[in-house]
Amino acid sequence: MDQIADRSGRPPQGIGQAVSAAVAEMESDGRTWELLELEHVHKRYSTPGEVIHAVRDLTLTVRERELVALLGPSGSGKSTLLMLAAGLLRADEGAVRFEGRDLATLGRRDALAHRRTQLGFVFQSFNLTAGLTAQENVAIPLLMRGIEHRQAHRRAAQALCEVGLAHRLDHVPQRLSGGECQRVAIARALVGQPKLILADEPTGNLDSETASSVLELLGTLPARGGAAVILVTHDERAAARADRVLSMRDGMLLTQARGGAR
């Protein structure tokens, strides 16, 4: 946050305003800035009789509007990396910065505000609420932020339109296909206009054809909504749509390659 304030020259009044100011500045000069930085990050889990080193000396930068695909086998540390990036976990060593601000310095309330306003999540098993319609599911993050019912539902409808589900607003998840459920989940991630979307195996529960269309939708997000995307996947096809492809094994980042998207 300090860095953002330095660049804009204006004192920050809150994380939301500061971020908006920084975005406005970057858009005005056409440059992209580091959105997320992980610097020499270590994360260990202690279990009885064992210490698991989930992330080892990981350094990574994700730029604004960048689509980064993260590949790797199960247990390689991808999930931990996502939680570190979201501020849901604290690094044992190293620093995790979002728009220059160290997430470790955020209190509980600021961390919650950060997740609500800056991040969007897409989960493998969708994690939609079964008894709510698609529109209600998408409106939930806005209602959590205290946005009034009518406005939240209007914005949810817009988000669903953006992912091609304008005709499915009143459908409950049980009446949607797997691909449609994941699109609802993507709309839920988008509705808060986040800076960064963390997508965790979004195609893991989908058939090949549906997975392709979901990957395609995710691939368009940086361009359409201005959000960067970290896409954790086993699906090699994601590489074709990514700006960068990262590979993890045993908690370490092995390779960084240019993707085929741009």
């Binding site: 609420t129 079964a130 008894g131 709510l132 209600e136 939930i140 209602l143 019912h149």
Partner: peptide
């Protein structure tokens, strides 16, 4: 029609 996310989610969860 409630704006309380917790209430909406609770009812939906119980129904499901």
């Amino acid at each position: 029609r409630a704006s309380d996310a917790a209430a909406k989610l609770a009812v939906a969860e119980l129904a499901s």
